[in-house]
Amino acid sequence: MDTAFFFLFNGIVYGLLLFMLSSGLTLIFSMMGVLNFAHASFYMLGAYFAYQISTHIGFWPALIFAPLIVGCLGAVIERYGLRTVHRHGHVAELLFTFGLALLIEEIVILIWGRNPMPYSVPSELDFALFEIAGNSYSAYKIFMMLVSISMLLFLYGIIARTRIGMIIQAALTHPETVDTLGHNVSRVFMLVFGVGTGLAGLAGVIGGNAFVTEPGMARALGTIVFVVIIVGGLGSLTGAFVASLLLGVIQTTAVAVDVSLADLVATVGITTSAADANDLMHKTLSQVAPILPYLFMVLMLISRPRGLFGTRDA
């Protein structure tokens, strides 16, 4: 039971990290109709910038500056890249972000090389905060949770309370109307893209040292974030939140479950031959777990393209 709690905790930490990525992606997609393939690349840039800054002036300034730099970079790319291809249609936009993801990976290799960076957890937070049943809970993971939750509350505050938040909300559902009302929708786009990528950058700052900072880190997360926003429902932050936590927990806990289909069948009294361990029946849940998100995503797209909480189709 205590171990279950430990898994749940780890899953939630990872899920919140996913949500920091998927919230920005959801905003960008629902406003601009662009699935930003390079979103996880901004996560990677956040981690690398944070590493670079922290080697000079420490982790805490990096926590502030790295996301800001990433956000500005995102805004510039929106202004001079994405907007240029916009006239060629959605396919061109998708291809642009796709090429961008590839290029960012190469640029990261160009500057920092291919080896993982020694970007580590700040020593102030590098201890076990408490221990339950032999499993210690690291202070840094609690810190990650706090950062993501406070960031998200802040974001919710902006969207729900401020004028720009109102425009964003309106632009989510009725972009044409907002445009005709005289709001500069393209500037809102730039802002949203900047904030979205900045948020991904922040996730990179706190995720890069908890996991590993290396050029493949964007790829490892890229499609999972897509799964989150599609399953959660395009344009729905609540959906993205629920889906992030769900996926985070599934991905971390499945490791612990050593039950296979054959075991399940055996409980009702049917035994299968244990001759071939490669047989699908003998795969444990932990081995099957990696395909679950994608299976879920495909089924969702086919049966309910608006996702769990979405209000409109993609």
């Binding site: 171990t3 430990f6 499993n135 490791v255 612990a256």
Partner: peptide
């Protein structure tokens, strides 16, 4: 990328 679930199992 994160081995902590495995470690918990070992634990």
């Amino acid at each position: 990328k994160d081995f902590s679930p495995y470690v918990a199992k070992i634990q």
